[in-house]
Computed example of a mutant assay.
Amino acid sequence: MKTPELHEIKKILGKPYFENKDFLLYNGDCTELMSKLPPNLINTTITSPPYNIGKEYEKIMTVDDYINWCSSWIEQIYNLTKKDGALLLNLGYLEVKDKGRNVPIPYLLWDKTPFYLIQEIIWNYGAGVSCRKILSPRNEKILWYVKDENNYTFNLDPIRDPNVKYPNQKKNGKLRCNPLGKNPSDVWQIAKVTSGSKRSSKERTKHPAQFPNELIDKFVQGFSNPNDIILDPFIGSGTTAEMSLKYGRKCVGFEIREDYCEITVDRIQNSDIYQTTL
């Protein structure tokens, strides 16, 4: 039996490309699909849009047009988000003509939204492009937005870092560190999903810009609650869906390319958490 909220979404958007009890996947433009939905449906959005750098899945825009486009769909997400909801937005770099070569997109976008910015999270990784005339980039940024700065979900315990230097250190007979671990801080060292015959990540799909499971694992557990509805309007390879289902959340995904939808379907059907399509 599908949850009332997912049933409502399906009733409005029609037959999805793929569905199971807790997941709806639609093949289409997310801006068109979101425009049809009523407000206050979504608890948390976790996504990474195209970076406007010429990847196979995007059309290059001027920087101003790109920022305006991002602002437009972020506002749509804001309207769909419940009062205590959040947006976790992963962004990279682009070139701004005559201004900068590797300009972090958050610097251009962070305040172009009605959301309230709680914090920037730095995702640091080892592998990446090797450069000769500049430092090799080894991070991307996640903007943690909320709708209400005084009322939002943050579950620290599930995402604590167990790597504590002195786990048994005490003060006045009491442990100084939480036995579950320490606060992971706002810099996360998580490996990228790599490719190649001898270095390909176990979770690798055919998608060219895949979220690592560990990153989305932390987003899902730390910034949503069981039975929440998680939206990914650029669902790509389906990592958000897999991690949402793994931890007992519902998920709605939009993807404009049918071949990427197929990657997500194959991934969900072959995962341990797959449930029979209803």
Rank of each mutant, 00 (worst) to 15 (best):
C30A: 13
G28K: 07
G100F: 06
F211M: 10
G222M: 02
V164W: 03
L215Q: 02
E140M: 10
G126W: 04
E95S: 14
G238K: 01
I74H: 01
Y260V: 02
L245T: 06
Y93V: 01
Q76I: 02
A127C: 08
L41C: 04
G196W: 08
L13S: 03
P212Y: 10
D272Y: 11
I268K: 03
D157Y: 12
Q210G: 06
G196R: 10
E255M: 06
P38S: 11
K83L: 11
L108V: 03
W123T: 01
Y57N: 09
G92I: 00
W144M: 06
L33C: 05
S200I: 12
T276N: 13
I118K: 06
T239D: 07
N90E: 09
E5F: 14
Y26L: 06
P184M: 12
P208C: 10
T240L: 08
A241F: 00
K218Q: 11
D259L: 10
T3Y: 13
L89Q: 00
W188F: 06
H207V: 05
I53R: 05
L175G: 07
A191I: 02
Y78W: 05
K206C: 08
G196D: 11
P104H: 07
E255R: 07
D259N: 12
P162S: 09
I42M: 04
W69V: 02
K112F: 10
T31N: 15
E214R: 08
K11A: 11
P16F: 02
D259S: 12
T31Q: 15
K2T: 05
Y78C: 04
